Computed example of a mutant assay.
Amino acid sequence: MAPADVAGALFFGLLYPANPALSLTVVVTTAITLAVVAWGALRQRQQDLVALYEDRAARIEREREQRAEQIQMAERARIARDMHDSGAHYTH
Results as ranks from 00 to 15, higher is better:
Gln46Glu: 11
Leu34Tyr: 03
Ala38Lys: 08
Trp39Pro: 06
Leu52Gln: 12
Gln47Pro: 02
Leu42Lys: 15
Asp82Thr: 13
Val36Pro: 01
Ile71Ser: 07
Ser86Arg: 15
Met73Phe: 10
Gln47Arg: 14
Ala35Arg: 05
Ser86Gly: 14
Asp82Met: 14
Glu75Pro: 04
Met83Lys: 15
Arg64Gly: 07
Asn19Phe: 01
Ala74Val: 04
Pro17Glu: 00
Pro20Glu: 01
Val27Lys: 08
Arg76Tyr: 07
Leu10Asn: 04
Ile60Trp: 12
Arg59Pro: 00
Tyr53Leu: 14
Arg81Met: 08
Arg78Phe: 06
Arg45His: 10
Glu65Phe: 10
Ala38Phe: 03
Ala74Cys: 04
Ala58Ser: 07
Arg76Gly: 06
Asp5Lys: 08
Ala31Phe: 02
Leu34Ala: 05
Pro17Lys: 05
Arg67Ile: 07
Asp85Pro: 05
Arg67Pro: 02
Met1Asn: 09
Ala51Trp: 00
Ala51Arg: 10
Leu14Cys: 11
Tyr16Cys: 08
Asp82Pro: 04
Asp82Tyr: 13
Ala68Gly: 05
Ala41Tyr: 12
Pro3Ala: 02
Met73Arg: 15
Leu22His: 03
Phe12Glu: 02
Tyr16Arg: 13
Arg45Val: 04
Thr25Arg: 09
Leu10Ser: 03
Gly87Ser: 15
Ala68Leu: 06
Val37Arg: 07
Ala88Asn: 15
Ala88Pro: 08
Ile32Phe: 01
Gly87Cys: 13
Thr25Phe: 03
Thr29Phe: 01
His89Lys: 15
Ala88Ile: 13
Glu75His: 08
Asp48Phe: 08
Ser86Ala: 15
Gln46Thr: 11
Ala2Lys: 08
Ile71Phe: 05
Gly13Ile: 01
Val27Ile: 06
Leu42Pro: 07
Ile60Gln: 14
Ala31Lys: 05
Ile60Met: 13
Thr91Gly: 12
Leu22Ser: 00
Tyr90Ser: 15
Leu34Asp: 03
Gln70Tyr: 09
Glu65Ser: 11
Glu61Arg: 12
Ala18His: 05
Pro17Tyr: 01
Val28Asp: 03
Ile32Trp: 02
Gly87His: 13
Ala4Gly: 03
Gln46Leu: 12
Arg43Met: 09
Ala68Ile: 04
Pro17Arg: 01
Thr30Ala: 03
Gln66Tyr: 02
